[in-house]
């Protein structure tokens, strides 16, 4: 073993690493919200009885889930400027990631909706709830509760996936690591450090999602 670890060489780049962590967090958080919103809309459309809604939703889900994220990213960043739509690296990353997450989360949500038996919806309606009330209390809430772990995993996976967007020049954590690597040539140290950073972020997100689950589902059902 003749490799000398020199973590000190990374010290001048502390602010770059912090910037990278912040951008990764921002990208992840905004993408989670946008992706969930897209996913919810698409999931509702794909269980709709109207094929005008169902068909485009299915096409979107299949197109996104069956193509690589990096291709979608390159189309948004390098392809759209040809059509006159020019987005910065970070906005392009946000849009591509949200579109991607939207397709995956819509499939998870659809599975949740389909787990609700039709008799329960009929029961809700016959108790005098409106269609919207039935959807909210009888379908949406129990559906999200049952698919919550899968959705949380998808979100954590998304946070890890943001590392791909450095390839279009976004300066999130992995982009900053590659930058520091190109300046210090201490590849092993840099990537060991950001491995730990990603691990820490993953554990933080997992704790956050567990806390949300407890607040929204456990505590509420106890009360």
């Amino acid at each position: 073993m003749n490799y000398n670890f020199k973590f000190k060489a990374l010290a001048p780049y502390t602010s770059e690493i912090i910037d990278g962590v912040i951008l990764t967090l921002q990208l992840s958080a905004v993408t989670m919200l946008l992706g969930l919103a897209i996913g919810l809309a698409v999931a509702i459309a794909s269980i709709s009885p109207k094929s005008a809604l169902r068909r485009p939703a299915r096409i979107y889900v299949e197109a996104i889930r069956n193509t690589p994220l990096i291709v979608q990213l390159f189309i948004v960043f390098f392809g759209l400027p040809t059509l006159g739509i020019k987005l910065g690296a970070n906005s392009a990353a946000l849009i591509a990631l949200s579109i991607n997450l939207g397709a995956y989360s819509s499939e998870i949500l659809r599975a949740g909706f389909e787990s609700i038996r039709p008799s329960q919806i009929e029961a809700g309606r016959s108790l005098g709830l409106t269609a919207a009330q039935t959807f909210r209390h009888v379908v949406l809430f129990p559906a999200i509760k049952s698919i919550y772990p899968a959705l949380a995993s998808q979100f954590v996976l998304l946070m890890l996936t943001t590392s791909i967007v450095s390839s279009i020049g976004a300066t999130e954590l992995f982009g900053q690591a590659a930058f520091i690597d190109s300046r210090t040539y201490r590849s092993f140290e840099v990537y060991a450090l950001i491995t730990l950073s990603y691990l820490f972020l993953t554990l933080a997100f997992r704790s956050l999602f567990s806390a949300i689950y407890w607040l929204v589902f456990v505590r509420r059902s106890r009360a």
């Binding site: 960043f77 392809g79 400027p81 020019k86």
Partner: peptide, 18 residues
């Protein structure tokens, strides 16, 4: 300065107008 993984990607950024 926009930094890319390699010369080909940097060239793509120029040719696409990014």
């Amino acid at each position: 300065i926009q930094r890319y993984d390699d010369d080909a990607t940097a060239a793509a950024a120029f040719t696409s107008g990014q």
